[in-house]
């Protein structure tokens, strides 16, 4: 890995957006930031601002109102960026499959890179998911055409 890729992998700043999850996965994401899981070990901080973020963590299935918010946030993140969906309902709708206000999985709204299943996804699973996403980020960063595409 070259130095830029290393830096990208070592400094994933996350933006967390809840699109209608039950809070279960959200509190597990928060738990990741706290002493026991301490993802700042990997350089991760929750920046809460799309313009600063590299990784978008989405929890919950999209509904009609938050889908446009999600699109806006994704749009405002500068490339290269990755999207991780946390939790079963964000992957597919899950237990909310027959709720009238749901659009289903997040991949119906924005492109998703990694799916982390679980109800709620455990902190370990979330870390695994981020590791997976960073691998993809590294691949993209190393391959010139993919990077150009990401930056375009």
């Amino acid at each position: 890995m070259n130095i830029i890729t290393t830096a990208r992998v070592k400094s994933p700043w996350i933006l967390h957006f809840d699109t209608g999850s039950c809070n279960g996965c959200d509190i597990e994401i928060l738990a990741c930031l706290t002493p026991l899981y301490d993802v700042e070990r990997f350089g991760m901080i929750n920046v809460g601002n799309p313009k600063h973020a590299d990784v978008l963590l989405v929890t919950g299935p999209a509904n009609r109102r938050n889908a446009r918010v999600l699109r806006n946030l994704y749009e405002q993140m500068p490339a290269p960026k990755v999207v991780i969906v946390i939790g079963t309902c964000g992957c597919s709708g899950g237990v909310f499959h027959n709720c009238y206000n749901m659009l289903g999985g997040i991949d119906k709204v924005i492109p998703v890179d990694v799916y982390v299943p679980g109800c709620a996804a455990k902190p370990e699973a979330i870390i695994d998911g981020v590791v997976l996403a960073l691998q993809r980020l590294a691949e993209r960063s190393e391959s010139k055409p993919a990077l150009a595409e990401a930056l375009a």
Binding site: G20, S21, V95, N98, C99, Y100, N101, M102
Partner: peptide
């Protein structure tokens, strides 16, 4: 509000009452 509105009250009518515990 309405950013996380799913429609659980309606889904609870569509589900069987046993399933609703999980919902």
């Amino acid at each position: 509000i309405g950013y996380v509105h799913r429609g659980i009250e309606k889904a609870a009518e569509l589900n069987e009452w046993v399933q609703n515990v999980f919902l």
